[in-house]
Structures are given as structure tokens and as C-alpha cells.
């Protein structure tokens, strides 16, 4: 509709990964966001869906050449104007395009409702990360007003960050409730980039990063097409210690299109992507824990 093609930092047709951060008030969502900004040199567009002053470290935004947008409680009931949809439109208009979009959902938002937008054109849901305050989560989940909200948030998570792990240990309790979700303890919301993004730390952050040696990674490449069903079976059968898998597959079912595959924890997404920009080939990257923690 009248838009001219623009120069993008991503190759044309490449999907922008979206990370959704959810969790109740005070769990450490903004701390995690600041940690993400500090630990990557990716160009990140940040969308914060909350009331009040936005406590993102301004220096990080500047140095990461990222941009921030804010959105208060975009109405999700009987509104014709959908704030979130408009915010995504604006993010897709950013020039140059960001390497990643990170959305901090409001303390009462259902992250699934936010991540549903990330299947749209130009976007690829990377992971829904829900942060909990280890000290208070067991009380919050029984709260008369917000217990069901927090419960829904946790159920929507690909990765649960059990923050403030230095104050309380709720790993077992969480595993009992969410046996198929990837759960990682954290202090000050420090989470390994391998988990958060599915790739090793970028140079800028590597110096301050100490936990990288608990992961190992594999690359798989093939230059012949594979049936989609085979690749889906393979992704589902990976052991639990593979925390992340992602890649582009040359499938015999749709050889003209890239098949974009993605696994976070145990959630597998397979999606038909854009046409091949160059040579067809399959390339998968896997990240796993060296040993069960």
C-alpha cells in the first residue's frame, strides 16, 4: 500500500525474532530486560507494556543503538483500537529493522496473548520468558485477585526464570507444577544468553559472562531436501537437555520455501517461511546443557 522498499539491516524476507517477557509486578522483568540489553550487541527494539516511569537503563538503550516504545494497558476486551497491534506496526516500520524485538508485558498481561502477535508477517516468536520472584511466588499464586493471572502467565512460559534464587529455592516446586517447562534459577535476573536467545554471547558481553561453559552447541547441515514429518519427529525427540534448537530446513514437501523450525524447551514450532534467497540447504543449530544441573 504505497510503501517503498527500504534498506534493512536484516536480509529481505528474514523474520525478526520476538522475545516476550512476562511475570507479575516485582518479579524482575525490567531487570531481565536491562540484562538482555547489556549482554548483546544485537540491535533491539523494546516495547514496554506498563504504567508508570519506564526504568530501562538509558545508557544501555543508547549504546545498544536500540529503540524503546511504551504502551500502557492496550485494551483487550471490547475495543476496536488495538494498541498492541499498532505497536507492532510501528516496530515493523523501524528503519533499519531491529535484530530482535523484546516485549516486556505488563504485570497482569497474559504473555500468550502478546506472543500470539509474533506469528504475524515479518515476525518469529523466539521465546516466552516468564520471571517469578522466588521469595513470593508461592503466596502470589494463591492471591484472591491475581493468583489465576499469575498461574496463566506461568502456563504460557517456554522458559521460567526463578529470579531471586539467592533468597529462596522454588525450583522443585515449579518443576512439580510445570514439568515440561524449561526452568532456570537466577539472581538479579542474570540468565545465560544461550538460553534466552539460543546463541552464544555476543562479543560485547562475553567478557562479563562466566556461565557459558555449562552449554555445548551443535551444528547440523544437509544439502538435500528432507520430508517435513521427519524433521518434526526429530525435533520432538530431542532430549530435554537440548534447551534450544533452531534453523532453516529444505523440505521435500515445500522445496520452494524455507521451512523455519524452532524449539524452546519442549515447544516445537515449524513454519513455512519466505522463498530461498540463494542456495537451498538445511542448517540447524542446537544448544544443550553439558550435564543435568
Amino acid at each position: 500500500m504505497g510503501h517503498h522498499p527500504r534498506r534493512r539491516s536484516l536480509p529481505r524476507g528474514q523474520l525478526i525474532p520476538v522475545t516476550v517477557i512476562g511475570g507479575y509486578l516485582g518479579a524482575g522483568k525490567t531487570t531481565l530486560l536491562n540484562h538482555i540489553l547489556a549482554s548483546t550487541s544485537e540491535r533491539i527494539a523494546v516495547l514496554v507494556n506498563d504504567f508508570g516511569e519506564i526504568n530501562i537503563d538509558a545508557a544501555l538503550i543508547e549504546s545498544a543503538t536500540s529503540s524503546t516504545m511504551t504502551l500502557t494497558n492496550g485494551c483487550i476486551c471490547c475495543s476496536l483500537v488495538d494498541g498492541l497491534s499498532a505497536a507492532f506496526d510501528a516496530m515493523l516500520e523501524l528503519d533499519p529493522a531491529p535484530d530482535r524485538i523484546v516485549i516486556e508485558a505488563s504485570g497482569v498481561a497474559d504473555p500468550a496473548g502478546v506472543s500470539a502477535f509474533a506469528h504475524g508477517p515479518g515476525l518469529q516468536l523466539d521465546a516466552t520468558v516468564v520471571v517469578v520472584d522466588s521469595e513470593t511466588i508461592q503466596a502470589t499464586i494463591d492471591d484472591a485477585y491475581v493468583g489465576d493471572t499469575v498461574s496463566s502467565q506461568l502456563a504460557a512460559a517456554d522458559i521460567i526464570v526463578a529470579n531471586k534464587a539467592d533468597l529462596a529455592d522454588v525450583q522443585l516446586w515449579l518443576t512439580g507444577r510445570y514439568p515440561t517447562t524449561l526452568i532456570t534459577p537466577a539472581t538479579n535476573a542474570v540468565v545465560a544468553p544461550e538460553l534466552l536467545f539460543g546463541h552464544a554471547p555476543t562479543p560485547r558481553a562475553a567478557a562479563s559472562h562466566e556461565a557459558a561453559d555449562i552449554f555445548e552447541s551443535w551444528q547440523i547441515t544437509r544439502d538435500r531436501p528432507l520430508p517435513r514429518a521427519v524433521i518434526e519427529r526429530y525435533l520432538h525427540s530431542l532430549p530435554d537437555r537440548v534447551v534450544r534448537a533452531k534453523g532453516i530446513v529444505w523440505s521435500s514437501d515445500r522445496p520452494d520455501r524455507q521451512l523455519i523450525v524452532h524449539r524452546v524447551g519442549r515447544r516445537v514450532t515449524v513454519r513455512v517461511g519466505p522463498p530461498w534467497p540463494g542456495e537451498e540447504s538445511t542448517s540447524l543449530a542446537l544448544i544443550g546443557l553439558l550435564s543435568t544441573p
Partner: peptide, 17 residues
């Protein structure tokens, strides 16, 4: 259905707003 509806503002945040 999760059993109850959705908050658009967190009850804990509402009084200060």
C-alpha cells in the same frame, strides 16, 4: 476458560495511579 477474567491494570498498582 481460566476461571476468571483479565486485569488490565494490576490491582496492586491501581491505587497509586
Amino acid at each position: 476458560h481460566p476461571g476468571n477474567g483479565l486485569w488490565l491494570i494490576a490491582p496492586d498498582q491501581f491505587a497509586s495511579i
